[in-house]
Design a protein around this nucleic acid. Structure first.
Lengths: 229, 229
DNA sequence: CGGAACGTTGAGTTCGGTCAATGCATGTGG
DNA sequence: CCACATGCATTGACCGAACTCAACGTTCCG
């Protein structure tokens, strides 16, 4: 049990939080393991808990009139859905695991209460939320300003650079999920990879090799206000 | 001068802020009048000031590789760009006035400083930011889950309801701006209006009449998790 | 070994964008 | 006060990016 608390305490979100505030936050909190494809929350429900991912991967998605769209994927240390928790409003998105995942759930009331009493925690929360906001803006710009092939190129380039420009690397997500993340169908992702072959990328199964980083970058035109760090 | 301060003091964002904190915030602040089509900020610049709109209308937009896209429009009481101010990071969007506008500019440093010392202000800021976040999410769902005609139908329905279901009403924005807001070309907006004629909408110039609210709603299928209030 | 899910490829469609012409306001200067 | 310029809105013809549907191949797992 002690180690469970510790793994939460070590999260960046709580780095500067006082012990007292941390106690309050974790008193009513759960830590839970979920299998793959577990639906964690459903849009429209009231935001009773702030969720924080310890390990695994979670997809945020939305539906309307039988259509569904993926909004984002999140890994360890990410929070969702903070904005609903703060405003005490219904979730705007649903969440499901796409791997076995370990999630902390902190009662929204406690988050709001501690926010008011602990300035450092308030700072952490607002920084986290601002980061989420900027993430959505970037995603939106990516979708609205780029063609599907350009989005793929930038996605590959970003992975490549994040991993330190390795000779080749493995895709983190299944291709169908990459397609969903980039706002296209799996068929179109395939066709995109085919086009990018001429620009200096070879994709074989899960393995990607960037044969011409310069050429790819020249095509992708990555931009820190969209792809950023 | 006194009335200038007063008009700021009365903003919702400062409703619960202490006088002392308010003093600090406004000490280094400007209030400025801008003409139509003034470029207020450019994406990539550092976020030196939090902007608050007192009157007028501001467009947020982004560009990449010669392409441009409208992200949102904002009227009185809205803030931008809060997230950049908080994170002390470059703006992700540019802003321009589309009417004569009166804008408050508060040094970002002061916002961050007061955030740490005044819990009520911190609360206001985080609530405002959470609202911005949810706004972007809704806009993104609107774009990704609906066809252009459906977006138009919902836009008209929302205006209609917001105004109290009047016999007819005038469009707030120019049609070209509505088109940009809804993520389509002006040509397509025109065609959309034509289609909606059959669904119970007549648009003549700036004037809209909803002849069949039921029928329009049946087509538009408005949803509180997208169109909300 | 068989089946299920994923991925790829091809054919055809559709939605929305581009380009161009025209109409319609508004506004300015002679 | 009118002539003309300018910018917005509309309409039509065409184009193209991306989606749908279907078939087939591959991989992985029971």
């Amino acid at each position: 049990m002690h180690s469970r608390i510790q793994e939460i305490r070590d999260l960046p979100l709580f780095a500067t939080t006082s012990d007292e505030a941390f106690q309050t936050l974790t008193r009513g909190a759960y830590v839970q393991n979920f299998p793959t494809h577990a639906e964690l929350i459903t849009e429209g429900e009231s935001a009773d808990f702030l969720h924080i991912i310890i390990s695994g991967c979670v997809e945020l998605f939305s539906a309307w009139q039988g259509r569904e769209t993926t909004m984002s994927f999140h890994g360890p240390d990410a929070t969702f859905i903070l904005a609903a928790t703060i405003k005490d409003r219904p979730y705007l998105m649903s969440a499901r695991t796409i791997e076995k995942s370990r999630i902390i759930m902190i009662p929204s009331e406690d988050v709001r209460a501690v926010f008011e009493t602990d300035p450092d925690f308030a700072k952490s929360i607002v920084t986290e939320l601002a980061g989420c906001y900027r993430g959505v803006i970037k995603a939106s710009k990516n979708i609205k300003l780029r063609s599907s092939t350009e989005r793929i190129a930038n996605y590959l380039l970003k992975s490549y650079n994040a991993l330190g420009k390795p000779k080749d690397f493995t895709l983190e997500l299944e291709k169908r999920r990459i397609a969903a993340l980039l706002g296209m169908t799996p068929e179109n992702l395939s066709r995109g990879f085919a086009v990018l072959k001429e620009k200096g990328v070879s994709v074989r199964g899960q393995t990607v090799r960037i044969t011409d980083p310069e050429g790819l970058a020249k095509f992708a035109k990555p931009n820190r206000l969209i792809d950023s760090w």
